[in-house]
Computed example of a mutant assay.
Amino acid sequence: MSAYTARGCIAFSGIGEEWRTEPYGWVALEQDGRRTVLWQQDDLGEENPAVGVLAFEVDFDGDPDAELSVLGEVDEFDYDYPGAALAEPGRRVPIRPGGTVRIDGRDGHVEVTLVLVPR
């Protein structure tokens, strides 16, 4: 296991609101049952910040050559579609460093781009 900085971006897309949503929940990187949270937002109702794409940078201890997955549970605050699911729990998507993946939800999707940089 080695020490890395996981950098990248997360893009949120909901029904009728591509790349500008009010998401809440979490997105994580997983390897061998260990999760590293890349983004997390509590549900603040109409106070949820509107975002399209956001950057992340977190410490990651792992093996870049071993299997990595992205997963999450992301909903969106929306008056028209209450409880809109952008990324549904249980959907693990394999990712390679330098790649981009999409986690689908019932009402939209989340895209994650990942780069690992040695610390």
Score class of each variant (00 low, 15 high):
A85E: 14
D63T: 14
P97F: 09
R91W: 01
D61A: 10
D61H: 10
V93S: 01
D80Y: 15
F60I: 04
L68Q: 05
D63F: 10
E111C: 05
L71V: 04
F77Y: 14
V58H: 05
V70W: 13
G62Y: 12
E88I: 00
D75M: 08
S69G: 04
G83R: 12
D107N: 15
G108L: 09
G108R: 08
G72S: 07
E76Q: 14
R106T: 12
G99Y: 09
R92M: 05
G105V: 01
L71I: 02
D104E: 15
V110F: 07
R96F: 05
A87G: 11
I103N: 01
G90R: 02
V93W: 07
A87V: 01
D75L: 10
E73M: 02
T100C: 03
L86W: 10
V117S: 02
P64T: 09
L71G: 11
S69P: 00
V117G: 00
G99A: 14
E67R: 14
P97D: 09
V101G: 00
L71H: 15
I95H: 11
Y79V: 11
H109P: 00
V101R: 03
A66I: 08
P94R: 11
P118V: 06
F60S: 01
V115T: 14
S69I: 05
D104S: 07
A66W: 09
V110M: 05
R106E: 15
A84H: 08
T100Y: 01
D61M: 04
V117M: 03
L68K: 09
V70T: 07
E67C: 03
V70H: 11
T113P: 00
P89R: 05
V93E: 11
V93G: 02
V115Q: 13
V93K: 02
D107P: 04
R102Y: 03
G108C: 11
R91Q: 09
V74L: 07
A87S: 11
F60R: 06
P97R: 15
F60D: 08
R96L: 12
V101H: 02
V58Q: 12
A84F: 06
I95Q: 08
G99H: 12
G105Y: 06
A85Q: 13
D61F: 06
E67S: 13
D75S: 07
D65F: 08
D78V: 06
P118Y: 10
D75F: 07
V70P: 09
I95G: 07
D80T: 12
I103C: 05
D104T: 01
G105P: 06
D59Q: 06
D107R: 08
D80S: 15
P97I: 09
E88R: 02
S69T: 13
D78S: 15
H109S: 13
G62C: 09
V112N: 02
T100D: 00
A84V: 04
P89Q: 08
E111L: 06
P118F: 10
G83A: 09
E111M: 07
P97A: 15
L116W: 08
E88K: 01
T100E: 13
D107F: 07
P89E: 14
D61I: 09
Y81V: 14
F60K: 02
D107H: 15
V115S: 12
G62D: 12
A84T: 04
D78K: 10
D104W: 03
P89M: 07
E67D: 14
E73A: 04
V112W: 10
I103T: 01
